[in-house]
Write a protein that binds this DNA or RNA. Structure first.
Length: 649
DNA sequence: GCGCACATAAACACTA
DNA sequence: TTAGTGTTTATGTGCG
């Protein structure tokens, strides 16, 4: 089919046999570090030794983990060294089925969280000792290490969880993840290249010798412990879940408690499908799912490896998050430290003091913090939908009309930056964040078509463009695809052309221009709006619509002084995906798109309509001219998109 | 209240 | 038969 599910689920059958050895080294290191840090291994096994031995005896390792986990919950093993920061025992011992990491974050202070995690680690290490005693295993170092790999894995999971939680806490403090920290991570998860994830899962799904190796594994035959395992397994899994919280806050381990597993939805179960990475088994109900979970995703090498990969995913996300945070910081610094920038035009972007949209914004973002897309084209749309603009979950939870389906949001689609600019500047953002692009389907389709080398696309190519460019369109495919088809058929500006290899869609620029409301430029109201604070949120729908889909008009440019150097510079940045056209800035600084609009409509003969076009309101030019603080018009591709050269005068 | 633009949903036909 | 494609209609929303 297509890439539509790329960001949602990595669907790979666990069949290939690629090893995951390359993935283990990292976790090993983490595990060893964690184990040592607790200083709780006195006289026991060093984490490093664990690792070696575990590689030699994976089966033992598994069993070891089972025992370890089972003992973890036993009452006799609560003797844990207290961390410097005391954590309520009830909290520390609370299973994740009872409280989610996010809830923990809310309940506990960061130091407490830290302490709690340390306690868990210490608990685990304590279990190593206990398990040894229980089984009276005269373990040579080599054997003792068998479980260490998974132990290290678990410990690294803890570490990862710590990092995630700390990072989320930081984000919360910054107001970036105000309501749903997990959503931010989920969004970031999408940020990871689907192919990377796919590859990772491919590598893992066929963990070498997952079952075969177990059968062939020599050494300890722990089959006698199978009964133990049977009873211990749930505990093991239960313990495991504590250590395996995904960045989005979900837990990756089945809840064995029948009460819980039936009482509430399972994080690994949704829409009748098993959400275990690489698995999309259909399960009619929770019971069936639990059964499936027990059968297919038991604590074995494969599952462990998959967890390990998930951990890699998390790490990647951490890296990505760090990068994005750094970028955000730089952007914030840029926006807030700039001296003597024209307030009236800068303020409204994110800190506007009026307008309903602003109010919404302030509800989402703390004052002073820019919204994810930091151009003037900062999407307004998502802000209406939920607390977090980059939150896919929130977006979904809020973006339903009639209980289902995306929210209707006509006005929010309107926005002041032309599509090319917005896409150019926030290409990565839209690619990764589950944010609906603030443009109409028609404009997006047009953009997709015009961006193509041949200025024509098949329907499927349009689909692909949507999914490639926007994380948002990697879900709810039926809805937006239907909308795309609907728009293609509905709007005259989209011309279907029978090609050798099928039908392709082209853009009739004339029709596209025709469909727009005329006479916007020069409107006193508009100018007033623009000048009086650039109130994006206060602009009425028509203006916003016009702003969103029109580009700079000559008249508007005439209203504006020559664009600042900064804004002019912006004209040439961020055209990674809209590079098919090039804008030229003439010597006096005015933007003069020298490219013929035929570039955008070569397939269809375009009849120039200077009158109509020159009347278009192009407030962005105004913005471009006066707001040198805003990373605005890199755009101006729309400028030429919508603006035939000859209309300059 | 009306018209417009838009989004969404759905039915239907056609075709590979 | 099915999925994809394309058309059309209906409905709701937000705005001027």
């Amino acid at each position: 089919m297509m890439v539509e599910s790329a960001s949602e689920t990595i669907r790979t059958t666990p069949s290939n046999q690629n090893g995951v050895s390359s993935l283990t080294s990292q976790s090993d290191g983490g595990g060893g570090r964690e184990g040592g840090s607790n200083g709780d291994t006195n006289g026991e096994i060093s984490p490093v030794d664990f690792l070696h031995l575990q590689q030699q005896h994976p089966r033992w390792a598994r069993q070891f983990l089972l025992q370890q986990a089972s003992g973890l919950n036993s009452p006799g093993n609560t003797e844990v060294k207290q961390s410097p920061v005391q954590v309520p025992v009830s909290m520390a011992m609370m299973s994740p089925q009872m409280i989610t990491p996010q809830q923990m974050q809310q309940i506990l202070s960061p130091p407490q969280l830290q302490a709690l995690l340390q306690q868990q680690q210490a608990l685990m290490l304590q279990q190593v000792k206990c398990t040894r005693r229980q089984h009276n295993l005269d373990l040579v170092p080599g054997r003792l290490q068998l479980g260490s790999k998974q132990l290290a894995f678990q410990q690294q999971l803890i570490q990862m969880q710590q990092l995630q939680q700390q990072h989320i806490l930081n984000l919360q403090r910054q107001g970036l993840v105000p309501m749903q920290p997990t959503a931010a991570m989920q969004s970031l998860q999408q940020a990871m290249c689907p192919s990377d994830l796919q590859q990772l899962w491919k590598e893992v799904s066929g963990v070498p010798s997952s079952e075969e190796a177990l059968k062939q594994a020599e050494g300890l035959d722990l089959s006698t412990n199978s009964s133990n395992s049977t009873s211990a397994y749930p505990k093991a899994a239960s313990t495991h879940i504590q250590l395996h919280n995904l960045p989005n806050g979900q837990s990756h381990t089945p809840k064995r408690d029948s009460h819980e597993e039936h009482a509430s939805s399972h994080p690994l179960y949704g829409h009748g499908e098993c959400k275990w990475p690489g698995c999309e088994a259909l399960c009619e109900d929770m019971g069936q799912f639990i059964k499936h979970l027990n059968n297919e995703h038991a604590l074995d090498d494969r599952s462990t490896a998959q967890c390990r990969v998930q951990m890699q995913v998390v790490q990647q996300l951490e890296i990505q998050l760090a990068k994005e945070s750094e970028r955000l910081q730089a952007m914030m610094t840029h926006l807030h430290m700039r001296p003597s920038e024209p307030k009236p035009f800068n303020q409204p972007l994110n800190l506007a003091s009026s307008g309903s949209l602003l109010k919404r914004d302030s509800e989402v973002y703390p004052e002073g913090l820019p919204h994810p897309p930091t151009s003037a084209a900062t999407p307004i749309t998502p802000l209406r939908q939920g607390p977090s603009v980059i939150s896919s979950s929130s977006l979904h939870s809020h973006s339903h009309t009639h209980g289902v389906g995306p929210i209707r949001r006509r006005n929010s689609d309107k926005y002041c930056t032309p599509i090319a600019s917005e896409l150019a500047q926030n290409c990565e953002f839209y690619k990764n964040a589950d944010v609906r692009p603030p443009f109409t389907y028609a404009s997006l389709i047009r953009h997709a078509i015009l961006e193509s080398p041949e200025r024509q696309l098949t329907l499927n190519e349009i689909y692909n463009w949507f999914t490639r460019k926007f994380a948002y369109f990697r879900r709810n495919t039926a809805t937006w695809k239907n909308a795309v088809r609907h728009n293609l058929s509905l709007h005259k500006c989209f011309v279907r052309v029978e090609n050798v290899k099928g039908a392709v869609w082209t853009v009739d620029e004339v029709e596209y221009q025709k469909r727009r409301p005329p006479k916007m430029t020069g409107s006193p109201t508009l100018v007033k709006n623009m000048i009086s604070g650039l109130g994006f949120g206060s602009l009425n729908a028509s203006y916003q619509a016009a702003l969103a889909e029109r580009s700079l008009s000559p008249l508007n440019r005439a209203l504006v002084t020559p664009p600042s150097a900064a804004s002019l510079n912006m004209l040439h940045v961020g055209h990674d995906d809209v590079s098919s056209t090039v804008e030229q800035v003439n010597s006096n600084g005015s933007c003069s798109p020298t490219l013929s609009p035929h570039q955008y409509s070569h397939q269809v003969h375009v009849k120039e309509e200077p009158t109509e076009l020159e009347e278009d309101g192009r407030p962005m030019s105004l913005l471009a001219g006066v707001t040198h603080s805003l990373p605005l018009p890199s755009d101006e591709r729309d400028l030429e998109e919508d603006l035939p050269t000859e209309e300059l005068e």
